[in-house]
Structures are given as C-alpha cells and as structure tokens.
C-alpha cells in the first residue's frame, strides 16, 4: 500500500510538471494554430534565470522568482516578434520549423554561456518533506502540485470571468470574426506568448531543484508534455492537465511494475493507442468542428 501511494505521489508530481508545459503548448496552439517546439526551452530559460539571480547574484528566492517572471514575459514577447510574427501569414510548416530553429538557437546560446556542466538550484522550501510512516512526500513535489492547481484555477477564472480572457478565447476560436468585432488580434496573440513563456518559466523554476539545471532539461520534459497534449486532446486546457498527470502516473507505475529501462516508452505506447483509436484525445474536438 505504501509503495502504491509513493508511486502515485511521484507520478502526480512529475505529471504536474508535464501538465504545466503542456498548458503552454495548448495556449499557443489555440491562439495561433501552431505547435511551439521551443516550449521546453522556455523552462530552461526560466531555470537559468533563477540560477543567475539566486545562486550567482545571491538575491532572495522570492525576488529571483519575480525577476524570472519578468524575464520570461520579455522573452515571450521577443519570441513572438522574432519567431512567430514575421511568419504569421504563412502556412503551418514554416512557423513550426521557425520554432524548432529557435529551440536549437536558444539551446546553443545557453550552452555557449554556461557550458554542459549542470548547475544547482535550491528548493523553494527549506524543509526536505513530510514523512508519513514509510511514505515520503518531497517538499518540492508538494510545491509543484500546489502551484499547478493554483495556476489552473487562476487560469479558469481569467478565461471565463474576465473580458480580456474572453477576448483571448475569441481570438483562439476565430481570428477573423474576433478582428471584425474590434478585438486586436495581434495583441491577444502577443499576450498569449507572454503568458505561455511565463508558464514555461514557472515549470522550469519548479523542476530545476529536482532535475538540476542544464540545457537538456527542456527536452526531457517537452516530449512528454507534447504527448500529454495529444492524449488530452490538442488545444484543450483541462485535457492538457489530465493528460500530463496521466502520463506521469502511467510511466511511474509502468516503470515499477513492468520495466524501468522502458519507462519512457509507456508514455508513447499510450500516445500511439490514442492516435490510433481516439485521435481527438480525451476532451478534444474534431478539427472540422473547431473552424
């Protein structure tokens, strides 16, 4: 029983990280119909920003987080202007290639500055965690789960109950119609990029104390997050959350009960199953219905 609960806790914890990155994928996809393959690198930039502010400059943790969020906001805006905006009227493919190019560019810039050696980031809380009998709840994983829940709640309130949120939704549903209604489509897309970059940055901040900080950090998470978005239904917000947590739990249980070396395969077996049997995912709408 303890083993079961321990596996469940770890699975949900790592799944919450996949979910956060998946959320970034989904928001940008909804706003632009493009998959942003640099989403994982957003987490890397956020993690390095934390290392620079808290470890190198010695600033307090909360200030490091605020600065990192600001850095990510600027980064998201620049990313939009440099990678998406010039190609916004082109088809799907050039934009996707552009995001892949940006991902390689960011990776190598960071590699050039910091080298391949991993850096460390202190955990958010001082306490190591909570022991309940033989069960151990790592404080950082608890933080991850709590922050993810809070962000999901905030995001729900924002999109359903504020005018700005509704405008952004309108843009994601139909750009031309939104534009006819006087919504500034370009600005809404800009806001989406800023928010997605901040989400990616938060994922980086949260996961860095567990996985250490190196350029490989983004790739480790982004591929699973991508699988999560497909399982959840591409473009669906609750789907990204459920998909992310499902992948975390499935791979953790699969690793323990079946095979550790094939751990990464379980996520993709589930992905294949969904692509074959239910391509629209758990909550997704069919593409024809969206337009």
């Amino acid at each position: 029983m303890t083993v079961l609960l321990q596996l469940l806790f770890q699975g949900v914890g790592i799944g919450a990280v996949y979910a956060l990155v998946a959320l970034g994928f989904v928001l940008i996809y909804r706003a632009t119909n493009v998959v942003n393959f640099a989403q994982g690198q957003f987490a890397v930039v956020g993690a390095y920003s934390m290392v620079v502010t808290t470890a190198d400059l010695g600033l307090p943790y909360w200030l490091g987080i605020l600065i990192t969020l600001a850095v990510m906001a600027v980064f998201g805006a620049l990313f939009n202007l440099g990678v998406y905006y010039p190609l916004r009227n082109r088809s799907f493919l050039p934009v996707v290639i552009s995001t892949i190019g940006a991902s390689i560019f960011i990776t190598n810039i960071i590699l050039g500055i910091y080298g391949p050696e991993p850096s460390m980031l202190a955990p958010m809380l001082d306490a190591p965690g909570i022991s309940l009998g033989a069960l151990f709840l790592d404080a950082q994983y608890l933080t991850i789960i709590a922050v993810t829940l809070a962000l999901v709640a905030l995001q729900y309130l924002f999109f359903e109950h504020t005018l700005l949120g509704k405008r952004m939704q309108a843009v994601s549903q139909d750009k031309e119609m939104a534009s006819l209604l006087g919504i500034k489509v370009g600005w809404m897309i800009m806001l989406t990029f800023i928010y997605s970059a901040m989400l990616g940055g938060i994922a980086g901040i949260l996961v860095a104390p567990i996985l250490f900080v190196s350029v490989g950090l983004g790739g480790q998470i982004a591929l699973k997050a991508f699988a999560a978005t497909i399982i959840g239904g591409f473009g669906d917000v609750p789907g990204a959350i459920v998909g992310g947590i499902a992948i975390g739990v499935i791979e953790t249980f699969g690793a323990y009960y079946i095979s550790v070396p094939y751990k990464d395969a379980f996520a993709f077996i589930v992905l294949f199953a969904f692509l074959l049997l239910r391509p629209s995912g758990l909550f997704g709408e069919k593409v024809s219905q969206k337009a």
């Binding site: 770890q10 996985l211 790739g219 998470i221 953790t252 323990y256």
Partner: peptide, 12 residues
Amino acid sequence: GYANQATDFTPV
C-alpha cells in the same frame, strides 16, 4: 537498468 536523462528514480 535505467535510460539516461531520467526524471525520477522512485521505481528503482
């Protein structure tokens, strides 16, 4: 056995 760049070693 585990695959490199693992995110979690709880099962091990």
